[in-house]
Amino acid sequence: MKYWVMGRASWELPEVADDERTVFMTSDGEDKGGFYKFEAEEPIPSYDDPSDIRGTLYAPKRTNVPVNRERPKNATLDLEWVSLGTATNGEVESWIAEYDDITQIHYLEHAETSWVDDFDRALAEADREVAENGNRDYISDEMIVTWADQHRQRGPDGVDEELRRVPFLETRAAARELDATVEFRKSEGIDTTGNQTGAQPGDEMYIGLAEVNAGMADDSGDLRHKQVDGGMVYRATVEEDYDVTRLEPAVVGPKAEDPPSVADKTPLNVDNTYVMPDGRVLLCEDADQLGRSYPNDGLYVYEPNN
């Protein structure tokens, strides 16, 4: 069963809480990554028909935005969650089905050149047009802007019916238009100490970010880290209401210019995390070479101090 209602993004992994309602999700995109949350209105297994699963999709908003760029090891993130919208699984599936007849030909029609005459040129033109102005066959940029305006004026439940689909089919674009924090760079593995039964209040959660660069390492937006191409791992504590409102740096990888003496012994581009029963954390790499003297990916064990 596909959980359409949890949104559309470059999903990497979910972490499901033991309340069977709350799901934290990481999205692995170079400049389109992210950290999201879904809350079902009832425990998901209690729905007889998966199409009836109903819940709300959330994006994070950092509340302690720094004035200047900050070192990743000092970059604690205080978060609040922005409600993007509420729907059922069946509703979102039906919205997706409306686009079933769109083909690659429709995409190529964004070009001025006929794809029959010059396919490569038409494809390049279509790519450029879609990148600059959006894909007119799906949800347009204008729809996203209108949805966000209505969301701010009326709240997430007050938008026009035809716009309710926007955050579920264009999750990151919708979150960005509401000024949520979307600069998380290549958000990868996520796990908690309750990984066998589901995340519980008091559990420690670990999130791997494979790189800290590009939009996550500039002077604008909510994340203004100094660049660390080797990435980092954030840690959070699951709160009593199954929420997460603070991410604290746990591990920071090497810089691209660091010599082998540093890069050889530092976790690099952590792609997956696994919390063992004793609280230690396995950090699994999917690594670039950077300054290392060897080509292999590594497996590290992180031992928390508390």
Rank of each mutant, 00 (worst) to 15 (best):
N195T: 06
E211M: 01
H110G: 05
G34P: 01
G291N: 12
R152F: 00
E125C: 05
V270C: 06
G202F: 06
D118P: 08
P156E: 12
P156Y: 15
Y3K: 08
E257G: 06
Y47D: 09
E257W: 12
A199F: 13
R128V: 01
E93A: 15
R71I: 02
W95S: 00
H225G: 01
V262N: 04
F35A: 00
M143P: 01
G202Q: 13
Y242A: 08
D127C: 05
E239K: 04
A263N: 11
I190P: 14
L163Q: 05
D101E: 15
G55C: 09
D219P: 05
P259V: 01
S140W: 06
A217T: 00
E285D: 08
I190Y: 14
D222K: 04
L209D: 10
I44P: 14
E183D: 04
L268W: 07
T192N: 15
A9V: 00
P277V: 01
N133S: 13
F24N: 10
G208F: 02
A87H: 00
V233H: 14
P50Y: 10
Q196T: 07
E91H: 12
A210K: 07
S83F: 00
P254E: 10
K61T: 04
L163K: 13
H106K: 12
Y58L: 03
S293N: 03
L290Q: 08
L283Q: 08
M216N: 03
V262F: 07
V262L: 02
E98H: 15
S220V: 02
A173N: 10
A59R: 02
V16C: 14
A126D: 14
V262E: 14
Q227A: 05
E161M: 02
V212Q: 00
D229T: 13
Y242I: 12
A124F: 04
I102L: 13
A124I: 02
D219V: 09
V182M: 06
T181D: 00
T237A: 10
P50M: 14
S220H: 10
G90T: 07
E240D: 14
K2E: 12
G202W: 11
I53S: 15
I144A: 04
D241W: 09
E125W: 06
A214R: 15
A131L: 15
G194Y: 12
N133M: 07
L169E: 03
S140C: 11
G208L: 10
R235Q: 09
D19G: 08
A75M: 06
L123K: 13
G194Q: 13
V270Y: 05
D271G: 12
P201K: 12
W81N: 06
W115K: 05
L247R: 10
Q289Y: 11
R176P: 07
K37S: 04
D243F: 05
E93W: 07
V244W: 10
D52T: 06
L178Q: 07
E239C: 05
R54M: 14
P45T: 08
V228L: 03
A287K: 06
Q153W: 04
N135I: 02
N195Y: 15
Q200I: 01
P66A: 01
V92Q: 14
Y302S: 06
